[in-house]
Design a protein around this nucleic acid. Structure first.
Lengths: 200, 200
DNA sequence: CTCGAATACTGCCCTGTGCAGTATTCTCAG
DNA sequence: CTGAGAATACTGCACAGGGCAGTATTCGAG
């Protein structure tokens, strides 16, 4: 098993570089913080730390709370080196999975009402996530935050995600109002598609 | 196998609603058009059409070019009904997988130079994809385009993707110049993270 | 006529998801 | 002090999906 570590592996290694974690904490923390740009099912995150141990990138301390198991994982020096090396490698381009856009793309097989419903949901969901991000910013306190020495880096990521959710919301509202002028979903009437694609 | 169709299944069904396709064409077409918002490996797309046939949503005509097999898939009436029903269902929120953002998030385990390299790549890749999209717009001709009656819908999707790539590029350039003022990757000096998160 | 590109797939192993299931410990309302 | 529900701490299983290698045929340009 000298296959290269996956991005998910490096993501967990990155968290271990901040402080030691139990698997359970790790599984929750990945979803809270990295979940915004590297979403992974909780299930998967239970497999990753033991794999890091077999690779010598982390160590495990098996403890317990009463009768219940509780494994604490710590990064090793080799783990820090591997992480640092990885930070210098080139990255895969971002990939977007956007189910509502698939529905929009095939909207002419349905009704204008269905398209409007899809776009309204996109706008509402994006706004909900934007408010969730803003609440996280509000709740951040320089003195008590767990990641206090990492707040400047967090801010760069948050700036992107706030703007990204805002873009989603604005686009969905724009698309809804543009398509509202169409006689039907497969006939845009006098609507000129090139006007919608002008580079401003 | 009365499990619900996956989004990938509906995506292929949607293409079949436009016109009949061979598996090979389908595999290429999904990557060219839907690939921007529903990326799937070519390999996977060879499994989908036969599955649609077993569900009665498509039919297959086994033909050949010389000695080589060539299966043409067509949507059925049941397929069109299934597609139409699906267009009215709610969608999963968009998910973003952004490896470079994981690298940014753990940038304090590396150097400022590594962070700048990551951000430069993000900006360059985003600009390359934006130009690719603009070239697609330029090349579109109302009279000959294969998807001529669908250009208005295409334009809504393209507007999003152009703005999305522009956002990626602008964000990466902004993050690079902001972080350029930091004394080191784990010390932002006098840089105030709250200023970066103001809502304008 | 030849060689490389395009066509047309299949097998295999791995990553990752979703869901159900199991069991223990903590917390707080009554 | 007690009982119920939330949080902790996982595992198994089936299925979706990705990456890569491999196979073979046909087309088109020089």
């Amino acid at each position: 098993m000298d296959k290269p570590l996956t991005t998910t592996g490096y993501a967990v290694l990155g968290l271990l570089a901040v402080r030691p974690w139990t698997t359970y904490e790790l599984a929750k923390q990945v979803q809270r913080s990295l979940g915004w740009f590297w979403p992974r099912a909780e299930r998967k995150l239970y497999d990753v730390p033991p794999d890091l141990v077999t690779r010598g990138l982390a160590t495990v301390t098996e403890g317990h709370t009463g009768r219940r198991a509780r494994s604490v994982y710590r990064i090793t020096a080799a783990g820090r080196r591997a992480l640092r090396t990885w930070l210098g490698l080139s990255s895969q381009p971002p990939t977007l999975e956007f189910e509502a856009m698939v529905k929009l793309f095939f909207a002419d097989s349905g009704s204008l009402e269905q398209l409007h419903g899809t776009l309204d949901s996109v706008a509402q969901d994006a706004e909900a996530r934007r408010l969730e991000l803003l609440a996280m910013v509000e709740a951040t306190d320089d003195t008590t935050a767990e990641f206090a020495p990492r707040l400047h880096i967090n801010a760069l990521a948050l700036r992107f995600h706030l703007d990204y959710e805002a873009l989603l919301g604005r686009w969905a509202e724009w698309a809804r109002s543009e398509s509202a002028s169409w006689p039907s979903v497969d006939d845009p009437g006098s609507w000129r598609w090139r006007d919608a694609l002008s580079v401003d």
